[in-house]
Amino acid sequence: MLHKRLYQFVLVYFIGLAFLFTVKGVFNLSDYVIPGLPDIYSTVHRVFTRYFFDVLNTLSVAIVGHILSIAMATVVGIIGRLSNWMGSLIRTAAFNIQAYPIVAVAPMIFILLGDGLSSRLLIASMICYFPLLLSFIGILSEPITDIEHFYVHSGRMRWQLEVKIRAFENMNKLITVVAGSATLAMVGTIVSEFIGASAGIGYSIRIALYQSDLSKILVALFMIGIFTSLYLAVLEWLGHIVSRSWGKREA
């Protein structure tokens, strides 16, 4: 899993780099616009350690934000699966709010909460929360009639059992959705750092942008890609373990 993700990322990254060098060659652009390999190499030496910790900082905020949004989406999804007025209200609200670009609210969050950890965390979790919530509501409100029928009509059905049946039957979908939203959490954190925070790799990219230093941006992108691939691989591995241990009696 991990090596596949890393291969894929490295391949895409170097294709992108090759494209940049092709553009540089074709249009005869200066090193100021697109730096050459020696420039990039020396930048790696200069900023590697700092960017390494910046990405770690960003990743840790993204992970916490991701966990928060999974917890929130689970709770709200469980309520939103209900067929009563409350479930209906939550579903309608979720569908309407998710249509609004959360990033647009980010400046307001920075004004209200400042440029610290809380703003980054809030934006990261909000960006991955709504896609998660919609998927969770969809999965948890879909009855698995073939299994639930017995429990419903023998009077044994409880909400915990209903959620367990639906989650178990859709385990692969849930794992895919959770892993997919990890990228969104990372994107949310970087965007929030880019907009207004004073820490993390997004902030470093903003500084590099002000300096028009593409080498730094390329190094940052490489490290973001590597760390995101690692996080996604860990999530997939965890999902694999969960589905294997939970479904060990399944064929």
């Binding site: 299994i147 044994r156 479904g247 009696r249």
Partner: peptide, 21 residues
């Protein structure tokens, strides 16, 4: 009312399920 397409939940074995219900 029982019908032939019903399934048992996948997390427990047949014996365990029957014992429980």
């Amino acid at each position: 009312y029982s019908y032939n397409l019903e399934r048992l939940p996948g997390w427990s074995g047949v014996g365990e399920h029957i014992e429980k219900v």
